[in-house]
Amino acid sequence: MLITGPLMFSADAVAYHNNPSFQFKMTVLFVALLYHFTIHRKVARSAVPPLAAKLAGGLSLVLWTAVVAGGRMIAFV
């Protein structure tokens, strides 16, 4: 994805840059990656209470679902 995404972007960079769904996707992607490599990783590697683990997992699912939704909308806005 780190390779194919930039390749597709390079084919139509200005249009992607101006596309609101693309901007949304990149914003959420940034948050999702940041979250994944900080809080999510910390929780996944430690013995935290079940509720905290569920919250961390749930938030991760929400973020990645938003990335997919934003990506899918790019072609329709």
């Binding site: 997919v68 939704a69 899918r72 909308m73 072609a75 329709f76």
Partner: peptide, 17 residues
């Protein structure tokens, strides 16, 4: 409609995931 197709398409993608 403006939204149904991309929403269903998105659900299709998530299902594939």
């Amino acid at each position: 409609g403006a939204l149904p197709y991309p929403i269903i398409g998105g659900i299709h993608l998530l299902g594939i995931a």
